[in-house]
């Protein structure tokens, strides 16, 4: 299996755990990722919020690069990048007028033909035995609150799973031996990039997610989105200060936990760069 890989702009910075663990897990599971040469920012929320055309064009240039690579499938780890690339792909294929306009804007004609998949879809698309037969350190004692956020499950044209009760990441973690708890904030919004401009809003939303995960008895939260991760992990201290709470819930990318279960060392999965200490989880897993 060979995929063009879009790492996203936070791959070496705020979301380094995701990129490192995605590459490590894929290597181990025989999924070949080839980084798209000279990929550019997908535009993210600022792109499409400023101009619809700009948002589609920034993402479409990357799709054109994938087509130039001669690959049919492309994947992104970041949920926002995935959603932007996938949405642009849908629009380029369904709206001829827009497609022509975008192709003039980018100077790199793209007419569809590439399939965009999130890394969650790719890894969860493996047979459960491909994970369970490789388990070195099953996550037996671990209770996880699996958190999907918004961008992978909405809108319908690009959703990876059900927008209200997605299960695909739950099943993956179950295959790795973890318990996945039932809780009600699976697809609640963390407030995303409002954190920079209106932090109070994000602290409230993120605080609610931490409260629900704690109430359901989770040992940790598992996510597939860098913004969710950053808001839940980095801002946890601030939430505790502002609301007088005492949360100490480690927040992982699902690739980190799958990696741990199949025997990759925590250091090679960037367990040591989190804001909330991850040692509690390592002790539980043993």
């Amino acid at each position: 299996m060979k995929y063009a890989y879009f790492p996203g702009c936070c791959d070496h910075t705020s979301a380094r755990e995701y990129d490192i663990s995605t590459r490590a897990v894929c290597r181990e599971l025989g999924i070949e990722l080839v980084e798209i040469p000279d990929w550019n920012c997908c535009g993210s929320t600022p792109g499409h919020s400023t101009s619809h055309l700009l948002g589609v064009a920034l993402a479409a240039r990357n799709l054109a690069l994938v087509a130039e690579m001669g690959l049919e499938e492309c994947t992104a780890s970041c949920a926002a990048c995935y959603q932007r690339l996938a949405m642009a792909n849908v629009e380029m294929q369904s709206n001829k007028k827009l497609c022509d306009k975008v192709n003039w804007v980018t100077g790199k004609p793209y007419h569809g033909g590439v399939r965009v998949k999130s890394i969650l879809e790719i890894i969860s698309g493996l047979q459960p035995e491909q994970i369970s037969s490789r388990l070195v350190k099953p996550l037996d004692n671990l209770k996880t609150a699996v958190y999907y956020g918004c961008l992978m499950v909405r809108p319908k044209a690009v959703q990876v799973d059900d927008p209200e009760n997605p299960l695909v990441m739950d099943h993956l973690l179950q295959a790795a031996g973890a318990e996945t708890i039932d809780w009600c904030s699976k697809t609640e919004c963390c407030g995303a990039s409002l954190a920079i401009s209106n932090e109070d809003v994000v602290l409230k939303l993120t605080g609610k997610i931490l409260a629900e995960a704690t109430r359901a008895g989770a040992d940790c939260i598992v996510t597939a989105c860098p913004l969710c991760h950053f808001n839940l992990d980095m801002r946890q201290k601030k939430i505790n200060q502002v609301f007088g709470t005492g949360y100490r819930l480690p927040v992982f990318y699902f690739t980190q936990l799958i990696g741990l279960a199949i025997g990759i060392s925590p250091d090679d999965l960037s367990f040591n760069t989190h804001f909330v200490d991850t040692r509690k989880v390592l002790e539980l897993v043993g």
């Binding site: 961008l151 909405r154 809108p155 919004c189 995303a192 809003v201």
Partner: peptide, 11 residues
């Protein structure tokens, strides 16, 4: 502007 583009409304 406050809309966080979560698309819950849409879905």
């Amino acid at each position: 502007w406050l809309c966080a583009c979560c698309s819950t409304c849409t879905s």
